[in-house]
Structures are given as C-alpha cells and as structure tokens.
C-alpha cells in the first residue's frame, strides 16, 4: 500500500479541493417513505442512503420479544448497484458487523423500556456508496427515528476521520479511505447541542495516541455541524407543512 505513489494531499488541499476539516456536501430529506413510520433520505458526498423506521410494533418471530423492553433491529445493507463491482445481494460479514455496531449506538439513546414486548425495526439501504456509508446511514437512521416519533434521549451524529499522508482529515472520501493510513468512524450521542458521549467508535489502521485525541476533537466538531443539519432538516419538514396550510386557508 505504501509503495504506490498516490499523493492524497496536494498543495495543502485534498484531492477534491476540500480543506482538512471540511465535510462533504450533505443533503437530507425527511419523511420520504409514506409507508414507514419514519424515514430519511440522506446524501453525504457521493453516498446516497435511505433509512426507514418501523415501530414500535409486534416482533415476529415472537420468541425474540423481550418481556421488559423493546427489541431494536438495525439492518445495514448495500444495494447491488451501490458500488462499481456489483455487490451480491444479502448480508455479508461487513454488513453484519456494521449492523451490530450501529444497533448498539442506537440502543444507547432509544428508551426501550417504554415498549416492552415490542420491536423497533430500522432499515438502512445504501443506494450509492463512497466511503463513510456507515456514518451516513447512522445519521439517516437517527433522523428517521425522530421522524417516527420514537422516544429517545437525544440524537446520534456520525462522521469519520482518516489519516492520509500523515495528516488527519475529516469525512474521508473513497480514495482517502482506500489509500489512507487509518480510518476512524465516530458516532456521538448529542443532546441539547452538547456531545454527551461516544456511541460508536471503530478503527482500521494505525495512529499515535496524540493523533487519536486530535481525531476525536476533529470528529466532535464535524458531528456538531451534522447535528445542526439534522435538526434543520426535521424542523423544515414541519414548518413547510404549516406554511402550506396557511396558503390553503387564505
């Protein structure tokens, strides 16, 4: 990997012209699926994901139900057309792992005890993947959960930090993820504009202790910006609905 002469940082900027702490362009649309209780379409750079939340609802198969709290199921899945080389449909080991850690992040904030013997299903489909799809999916899932009216302690915002050419960069894209030295996805539980705790943390590669601390701070700043966008997207949905009603009445 190191013997290839790919320069990922050129003249102090990344290959797509971004600064080290710039996020990729993000777009969010809430309530895109009529049948789901809550949903969100999200674009993060070239990633395009859709999250759907169903629940609380009855758990099928029944024996998986927990008598004292709701069971949360999270399914991360990449569509066969989401990557250049067709991905065979169905869960693979990577999807299963991502589903597990994402579910654990969500379980930290959802008030499961309020709905014993029921289930909350979260499905996130990656329609187009470009590094950081798991972070995009968690952001979308968090918004979809809010849209569904599920009681939660706060929200989850997720972003990754990578180390490329010995420099830490926020929200890596495909080339930086593939040829970088480390990739560290983060997710934070955010409440009332404050980061309360880390909900997800994974790492692939090597960084020094100081670099890790630096990466954490960088991720926190990035996550706060994403949190603002999530709030904005949700509030926009309801404000536009109200404005439409004003026009109808007048």
């Amino acid at each position: 990997m190191g013997s290839e002469e790919i320069r990922l940082i050129v003249d102090g900027k990344r290959l797509d012209g971004r600064g080290f702490e710039d996020l990729r362009p993000i777009k969010m649309k809430v309530g895109v699926l009529k049948r789901a209780d809550g949903s969100c379409y999200l674009e993060m750079g070239k990633n395009k994901v859709v999250a759907a939340v169903y629940g609380p609802r009855e758990v099928h198969p029944r024996h998986l139900a927990d008598p004292i709290k709701a069971v949360i199921r999270y399914r991360y899945n990449m569509a066969p057309f989401s990557v250049e080389e067709r991905k065979r449909p169905g869960p693979d080991r990577r999807s299963v792992e991502i589903s597990k850690v994402s579910r654990e992040a969500i379980e930290a904030i959802v008030m499961k005890e309020l709905f014993p013997r029921s289930g909350i299903d979260i499905f996130v489909e990656v329609l187009q993947a470009d590094a950081g799809s798991r972070t995009a999916c968690l952001n979308a899932a968090s918004v979809a959960l809010v849209d569904a009216g599920v009681p939660m302690k706060g929200m989850i915002s997720s972003v990754a930090v990578a180390k490329v050419d010995d420099v830490l960069v926020l929200d890596p894209m495909k080339e930086e993820d593939n040829y970088g030295q480390a990739d560290i996805p983060f997710a934070f539980f955010i409440r009332n504009d404050r980061i309360e705790s880390i909900a997800l943390l994974q790492m692939d590669g090597r960084v020094s202790r100081d670099e890790f601390v630096q990466a954490l701070e960088m991720a926190k700043r990035g996550a706060m910006r994403i949190y603002e966008m999530q709030k904005e997207a949700i509030k926009t949905k309801y404000i536009t609905e109200s404005e439409e009603e004003v026009n109808e009445v007048e």
Partner: peptide, 16 residues
C-alpha cells in the same frame, strides 16, 4: 392562523 412561536417544535434531547 398559525402561531408557531407559542408552540415551537422540539426534538428529542432538547432542554426544556
């Protein structure tokens, strides 16, 4: 007639 100021929308985790 809407008075969103009197009933603002809040998100989970907002301090009330």
């Amino acid at each position: 007639m809407i008075d969103l100021a009197s009933r603002p929308i809040v998100l989970p985790g907002e301090l009330l």
